[in-house]
């Protein structure tokens, strides 16, 4: 079994309402150094070993976990952090 970590973020140029709101809130809390905030999603996926494993994880992202119209995703295979069951 392998664990994949998936980071989903808005594509460049797509307005991020939660990020913009957090940036305003941080500024009003006195953190005037904050220039930009982007908020995305973090997903972990445990999958059984298989021949097309990585390709199938990408397919899962394209199909369901991210919307390619507005979002990018980054897949990181976690090393040695998964125990079966």
């Amino acid at each position: 079994m392998a664990r994949y970590e998936i980071f989903v973020t808005y594509k460049k140029g797509i307005f991020d309402p939660p990020g913009a709101t957090a940036a305003r809130a941080l500024t009003s809390l006195g953190y005037s150094e904050v220039e930009d905030v982007k908020i995305g999603k973090y997903i972990t996926l445990d999958v059984a070993d298989g021949p097309d494993e990585a390709a199938r994880v990408r397919e899962m992202c394209d199909k369901l976990l991210a919307n390619p119209v507005i979002e990018d995703y980054r897949i990181v295979e976690a090393q040695g952090s998964v125990s079966a069951g």
Binding site: I14, F15, D16, P17, P18, A20, T21, N67, V69, I70
Partner: peptide
């Protein structure tokens, strides 16, 4: 596609 409303 749809995003959260501006101002949440």
């Amino acid at each position: 596609a749809m995003l959260r409303n501006r101002g949440l």
